[in-house]
Every structure is written in structure tokens, then in C-alpha cells.
């Protein structure tokens, strides 16, 4: 597992360096205080990570489970496309001003869960007459089948779509940080405030930080995918 993580992370190092370089160049061109801009962007990233990571983990895990169980889970997948994270964040901010952290998490986790539900449900339906039938033919029954085979299948499918889920969640995190009052002060807030002020150096540095975060999370997601599903370990 550790070597897999290392391999995946090392594979994205050039991309991360490229992002850092681009941010440094733009910040240096924009003004003299470019080291502070980069430093501020880096310092703001952990707050965003603390918002994105649990939301993704929770959303993907629960979504995959709902997807393979079918029934009520299918409804979540069905309405999923109608509720991008930024829209949920706005709705929560306007209606329930209490508990912004929890609501922010929910706004990010729900779309991820909806996508995972759809992918996992499709994977289960596709495996019904192949892998799952073969396992039943060998005498595997209800709950063992769900936990040992159907759920890993669903999780694997959900992890396969993790790249777009990561990008969507990071995007939505920017909206959450900006709509939830003073609850969060991460890279998303930094980015929007700099953009509003027309501070190109800071805005690009923050955006590069967010992109780097997405790349890193994508790499970790691929490593986790490979850990769950040996078929995804290659390459």
C-alpha cells in the first residue's frame, strides 16, 4: 500500500512543480510581494483540505454503499445532477445559518455521494449476471455477497470516477468557504477575495494551490483505488 501511494504521488510531482512554478511566475510578475502570496496560499490550504477530504471520503463511501444496495440509494443518484455543491451551499447558507461546518460538509459530500451512488449502482447492475452470478453459482449468499463482493465492486467503480469528483468538490469548497460567513478561511476564500480585489498574484497562487490539492487528492484516490481493486494497480 505504501509503495503504491508513493508511486502515485511521485507520478504527480512534475504536475505539482509545474503548478508551483506557474504560480510563482505570475505572482512575481504581478508585484514584489510574491513570496508572501505563495506563503499565504500554502498556509490556507490545510483549512480547505480539512473541508474537502472528509466530505469526499464520506460521500464516496456512503454513496457506493447506497449504490450497491439499490432502492432508496437510486433516488440520490437520480437527483444528483440537479444539486452541484455550490448550489447546495447557497441553499444551506440561506435557509439554515446554524452549524456552518456541518452544512458545508454536507454540501460537499452530497454531490460526491450522488456520483458514487450512480457509478456503484451501474457497476452492480453490470456485475449482476457476471461476477455476482458466478459467486452465487459457487454458493455465496446474501450478506457475504454484499460485503465481500458487491461493495468492493461499487467502491471500485466510485473510485474510478474520483478524479471528476475531486475537481467538483474542490470547486464547490470555494463556494462553501465564501458563503458560510466566517466559518472557514481557507484557500477558497483567499482566492475569491484576491480575485475581487484584482490581486492577480494572490489569486493565481491560491488557484494553483487548489489545483495542486486536486492533483494530490486524485493521486491518493488512485492509490486507494489500487488498494481496493488489484485491477487498478497496473501502470
Amino acid at each position: 500500500m505504501l509503495s503504491l501511494v508513493l508511486r502515485r504521488v511521485l507520478a504527480v510531482v512534475p504536475a505539482l512543480l509545474g503548478l508551483a512554478l506557474a504560480a510563482a511566475v505570475v505572482a512575481a510578475l504581478a508585484g514584489p510581494g510574491w513570496t508572501q502570496a505563495l506563503g499565504a496560499a500554502l498556509a490556507a490550504l490545510p483549512a480547505t483540505l480539512a473541508l474537502v477530504l472528509p466530505a469526499l471520503a464520506l460521500g464516496t463511501g456512503l454513496g457506493a454503499l447506497l449504490g450497491v444496495m439499490g432502492g432508496a440509494g437510486a433516488v440520490l443518484g437520480w437527483v444528483g445532477p440537479a444539486m452541484p455543491g455550490f448550489l447546495l451551499a447557497a441553499v444551506f447558507a440561506a435557509t439554515l445559518a446554524k452549524a456552518p461546518v456541518l452544512l458545508g460538509l454536507a454540501a460537499l459530500a452530497l454531490p460526491a455521494a450522488a456520483q458514487a451512488t450512480t457509478l456503484a449502482g451501474r457497476a452492480r447492475a453490470g456485475a449482476e449476471d457476471t461476477v455476482l452470478l458466478a459467486a452465487r453459482g459457487r454458493g455465496m449468499d446474501g450478506s457475504a455477497l454484499l460485503w465481500r463482493l458487491a461493495l468492493p465492486l461499487g467502491l471500485s467503480a466510485a473510485m474510478g470516477g474520483l478524479r471528476s469528483a475531486v475537481a467538483g468538490t474542490v470547486t464547490a469548497a470555494v463556494a462553501v468557504e465564501n458563503l458560510s460567513g466566517t466559518g472557514f478561511s481557507g484557500a477558497g476564500r483567499l482566492f475569491v477575495e484576491a480575485a475581487r480585489a484584482g490581486d492577480a498574484g494572490m489569486a493565481v497562487a491560491a488557484l494553483a494551490g487548489l489545483c495542486g490539492l486536486a492533483v494530490l487528492l486524485g493521486a491518493l484516490g488512485r492509490a486507494l483505488h489500487g488498494w481496493i481493486d488489484p485491477r487498478a494497480r497496473m501502470a
Binding site: 461476477v131 458466478a134 485491477r231
Partner: peptide, 24 residues
């Protein structure tokens, strides 16, 4: 005991052959 081997001969994609024999 009856056993069905399906058309595609699918095995559990997540476990090694040895683990599948041991489990069954």
C-alpha cells in the same frame, strides 16, 4: 452439492486464486 460455472467463468476480481480456493 451443486455448483454452477457461469458462461464467462468469472472469478472474484479482488482476491488471489489461493484466497478464493481457501474461502470456498
Amino acid at each position: 452439492r451443486r455448483l454452477l460455472v457461469t458462461q464467462d467463468g468469472a472469478l472474484d476480481p479482488f482476491r488471489t486464486l489461493g484466497a478464493q480456493f481457501a474461502e470456498l
